[in-house]
Design a protein around this nucleic acid. Structure first.
Lengths: 252, 252
DNA sequence: GATCATAGTCGTCTGCCTGACGATAAACAC
DNA sequence: GTGTTTATCGTCAGGCAGACGACTATGATC
């Protein structure tokens, strides 16, 4: 296989973002409305071209900041401030995935706490948080009756892969805290798991598990009643990133 | 963020392969010797450009066949014949990773049973199976005393990521059978785990675990004494792809 | 052929973890 | 105060893994 550096087919390389958050007990993803063909007017994942002098992670962090204002954390750093967790998801390169040209998209997964409001270059009407189940159903209607077209390009597949990554990764890591504000209660963390997995968990067993795992949660000393009921202890994410043994999803 | 389809920086897109196998109780990776600059004469992972009309998985499968003669399995299909498991690993796109031009490499991970002999376009002297620990040590010397240079480009990082993926994935999936021939014994499967993880496992507990997991192993009825000792039952990989509960690596 | 080394297979026991669920505690709404 | 909500602590039984004993069936060696 002789090698000729000048004889390679040129590709466009983009990053697409699966930005997930938990709003009102539902796992939601950030979607932006496309302003041009192809798929004009349809919803898509945010993303854009990788610049000539930019690393893939840098490009993803830049796009994330442009779309949400969020800063990205360093990959291995614990979740501390209001930044988002950002990691590479997978790369999609079907020759037909973009009708205009050959585009390879390096999808990234971002997990963020509930945010005030999305912004897409300042235009809020062209960006929204939508429940992932609504974005993933093929056609059909949202809860408010508005008809929903499938996501543009292969973004439904990318979103599905990102959701599955998030669902599986909170099993064996402390990543679920990325969905929470810097201080949170055990109940709030449990509701994150319930929203991401779409199941109900036993509050008592969940409490035992997360408080019994060394390094997972660090009590701040404060309490809150923002969820109603008896005051709950506030915690911060601890240094542990891996949960061993993992917290397995209920079978079904 | 105005969009101009003609104004994107061109990238070269390649696939690089982390091909792993188990030889003589050691986890080994396929390495090829570079014939040209940069890194001329150094060992590298096999790989090549993605063609203009080719999917990423197709390109990886083609490179795998060119380098080893192996056919790749469909992602979700159980391991049956002597083909290899192939899956996307991660994508590497640092602007400086190739001094000649901007190259984004979509690395893939392949797991194969022990093979007769490597071939690199027919030239066996430029391809070899090397223990991953030898390829990953920075400089230093192989066991035969020959000095070893680090892998070319960022291939040490890619290899390390691929090894870690394999190590973690055999915990919760039946992927370890991809390292075995179509029929194998429990002891042979155990030696795969031991080589990949670099630990010793209790034969009795391992036997109980793998034979007790429904769908993991299917007895063929035959026996073999190719490992010496008492004849062992032969098994084939069952339909189950996920191990639940997983088989966790020993802590140490 | 007896003995030994090797590898495979079946059991036992103990401790840890989880799921199911009872009970109590501390806030707020009325 | 009563009821409602949420948090937190306990109890108990079953499942599973680690440690390890015992037995089996081969080939190798004397």
């Amino acid at each position: 296989m002789p090698y000729d550096p000048s004889a390679f087919p040129p590709f466009a390389v983009t990053v697409d973002l699966v930005v997930l958050t938990v709003r009102r007990h539902a796992l939601c993803a950030l979607a932006v409305r496309r302003g041009e063909a192809p798929f004009q007017g349809r919803w898509a994942l945010p993303g854009g071209f990788v610049r000539a002098d930019e690393d893939l992670a840098q490009a993803a962090a830049r796009e994330l900041a442009e779309e949400t204002g969020l800063r990205a954390h360093e990959p291995a750093a614990p979740v501390q401030d209001n930044g988002a967790h950002l990691e590479q998801l997978a790369t999609y390169g079907d020759p037909e995935r973009d009708p205009r040209m050959r585009v390879v998209s390096v999808a990234h997964l971002a997990l963020a706490p509930d945010l005030p409001a999305p912004r897409a270059g300042g235009d809020a009407s062209n960006a929204r948080w939508a429940p992932v189940e609504e974005l993933l159903q093929r056609g059909g209607h949202a809860r408010d009756g508005e008809p929903v077209a499938p996501l543009a390009f292969d973004h439904a597949q990318i979103l599905a892969d990102g959701v599955e990554r998030a669902r599986s990764k909170i099993e064996y890591s402390s990543l679920a805290t990325a969905f929470c504000p810097s201080e949170f209660t055990v109940g709030e963390l449990r509701r994150v798991y319930e929203a991401v997995w779409g199941v109900a968990l036993d509050p008592r067993n969940f409490h035992r598990k997360v408080t019994g795992t060394p390094g997972f949660l660090v009590p701040t000393g404060g309490t809150t009643t923002r969820q109603g009921g008896r005051p709950a202890q506030l915690f911060r994410a601890g240094g542990a990133t891996l949960l061993n043994p993992p917290m397995l999803r209920p079978e079904v």
